[in-house]
């Protein structure tokens, strides 16, 4: 075989691999959209390309009323979780990264190890706490319990971020006798926006997707968040599962996430690797 042909074969093989990678990544969601746009008998025929497009499944989900409420529930929980954990994490990260004190390393290790906790390990204890606090079947039970994974993560990433900033930026402020709180507010916050957007976004996605706590701490349809709502959509029998509606609901809750992730691609990738690799 001549070198030119070998090179051509190599290039072809490479692009074949690229095609396979793209196809496997995109196809399942493409097929979900396809199914969501079919209705009646068309759903039960395997199609690879769109045939008769109808939005009946989407109208069905929206007209239902409860699904809209469930989306709002998810938006509320994820937003409040992000705001509270960012607020708690910024001040904590300042202390952990800019001030030397005894036990700092141990504290960081403890916080990191909390993020390794299997959620199931705290489930029965949390269930008791939430019942005692009177939060059972309230969205606040999720706001409270989601702190277990958003807080360690945001503290960890913001601490590594703050640590990289030069000491000079706060020296002048300390000399002027500014309080630590003023230093955070006036000096660090303006510089921290990129890191906070990234961690906030990742925490939002995590809270939006959470399933186990939402399944356990909420008991009525109107209170549920979308992952549990989608998991519990069912027909009267195994043969009447409304696949069209399930796919429509899936597309509705996933599309905004995909858009967010693609828009903030670079930030998310750097946030993910900072959360996992650095240390």
């Amino acid at each position: 075989m001549s070198p030119a042909i070998t090179r051509l074969a190599k290039t072809a093989g490479f692009y074949l691999l690229v095609a396979v990678i793209i196809l496997q990544a995109v196809f399942p969601f493409y097929y979900a959209i396809l199914t969501s746009l079919e209705s009646g008998q068309a759903i039960f025929e395997v199609n690879y390309l769109p045939t008769a497009v109808t939005f009946a499944n989407y109208w069905g989900m929206i007209a239902d009323g409860v699904f809209g409420k469930q989306i709002l529930n998810s938006v509320f929980v994820a937003t409040v979780v992000v705001c509270i954990s960012l607020f708690l994490a910024v001040t904590a990260a300042f202390a952990l990264s800019r001030i030397r004190f005894r036990g700092r390393g141990l504290l960081l290790l403890t916080i990191l190890s909390v993020s390794m906790f299997p959620q199931i390990a705290v489930l029965s204890g949390l269930f008791e706490v939430i019942r005692i606090l009177g939060l059972f079947n309230s969205l606040w039970s999720l706001v409270f319990s989601y702190m277990i994974f958003t807080l360690p993560f945001t503290v960890w990433v913001l601490t590594t971020f703050m640590r990289k900033m030069p000491i000079e930026i706060e020296e002048a402020a300390i000399m002027d006798g500014a309080s630590s709180f003023t230093i955070i507010r006036r000096i660090f916050l303006p510089l921290m926006w990129p890191a906070m957007v990234t961690t906030g976004l990742l925490a939002f996605i995590h809270a939006w997707n959470e399933f186990l706590f939402a399944l356990t701490f909420l008991s009525t349809d109107g209170q549920r968040t979308v992952p549990v709502a989608i998991a519990l959509i069912s027909g009267l029998s195994e043969f009447e599962v409304p696949w069209g509606n399930i796919m429509a609901a899936s597309v509705i809750v996933t599309l905004p996430l995909i858009v967010l992730v693609l828009v903030f691609q670079r930030k998310i990738v750097s946030g993910l690797t900072a959360g996992a690799v650095k240390g």
Binding site: F29, A32, S250, T254, I258, V261
Partner: peptide, 17 residues
Amino acid sequence: AAVLIPWAIPTIVSAKM
């Protein structure tokens, strides 16, 4: 961008899909 899509899809949604 394509590779990020499965990551962005909620676990429950991927399970259902």
